[in-house]
């Protein structure tokens, strides 16, 4: 803890860098996964390819990816963009499956209803499928965000790693306090991001968090239109009685 208290300026700068390097790829990942999911969600062949590619990407070690990317896209080896791109790929790979599954989980009768009422496919995707996919997508995004927060530190090995640089420096100088400081701040970041996404998801899905149980709420069904009031008087017309033919 000493290191953290003695170097608040440096810790803060590294924290901001770390946040930037983990949040941007998460956002990119969500966006890309959504586009892929919404466009290819009901094309089985495209889906199979995307899923396979995503799984393959996810098995590539992060360090390898950090090193290989510059040679593919021509960036400098120390460019933070390498880390952003690599982590975006991971996040997309992780989330695209979630998006497929989330879209699959939308009840068929809801899709049926949307079609019957006159939704075009694109409109349905955006206004029906997407909102209904928010909750499972948010769960996946929490995993992706936390994964990114921890993966960013690996970037320190190539000089771009936010708080991960504390690990490298602390290890080289045999200064455990600095390493501990990195671990603490990274943990806090991961927790905060996780809670933020969970909170945002809650705000975006009010229908999952209503209070009243069915039948208990006020304003119950009104008497049917066209039915006579059921009174206690026996002399009464039968004009509106039930009458099966």
């Amino acid at each position: 803890m000493r290191w953290l208290l003695d170097n608040p300026g440096q810790a803060w700068a590294l924290t901001l860098e770390h946040l930037f390097l983990s949040i941007v790829p998460t956002v990119v990942g969500v966006a890309l996964a959504l586009v892929l999911g919404l466009v290819f969600g009901n094309r089985p062949r495209a889906r199979a390819v995307i899923t396979a590619v995503a799984s393959a990407i996810f098995t590539i070690p992060s360090l390898a990816l950090f090193v290989v990317i510059p040679s593919i896209i021509g960036t400098q080896i120390l460019d933070p963009l390498n880390v952003v791109i690599a982590l975006s790929l991971y996040a997309t790979s992780l989330l695209v499956r979630t998006v497929f599954d989330a879209l699959d989980a939308v009840a068929p009768e809801v899709l049926n209803a949307a079609e019957a009422l006159g939704y075009s496919r694109a409109r349905r995707r955006v206004f029906v499928d997407l909102p209904l996919a928010v909750a499972p997508l948010a769960a996946g995004t929490r995993v992706a965000a936390v994964t990114n927060v921890s993966l960013v530190s690996v970037g320190a090995v190539i000089g771009v790693g936010g708080l991960g640089q504390l690990f490298v420096a602390g290890y080289q100088r045999n200064y455990p306090d600095q390493i501990l400081a990195g671990i603490i701040v990274i943990l806090v970041l991961a927790l905060v991001l996780d809670r933020l996404i969970a909170g945002a998801a809650r705000v975006l899905t009010p229908w999952l968090h209503h209070g009243a149980a069915p039948g208990q709420a006020p304003g119950r069904r009104r008497p049917a239109i066209g039915r006579a009031k059921v009174a206690t008087i026996p002399v009464q017309d039968t004009a509106n009685r039930e009458e099966p033919k």
Binding site: V110, A113, A116, S120, V128, W207
Partner: peptide, 22 residues
């Protein structure tokens, strides 16, 4: 199809309401 359906009411077996809308 979309124009046609907007002019035809449809009631489904299990109501088929949109769970995310009031």
């Amino acid at each position: 199809a979309v124009t046609l359906r907007l002019g035809i009411g449809y009631v489904l077996q299990n109501a088929g309401l949109f769970p995310h809308r009031t």
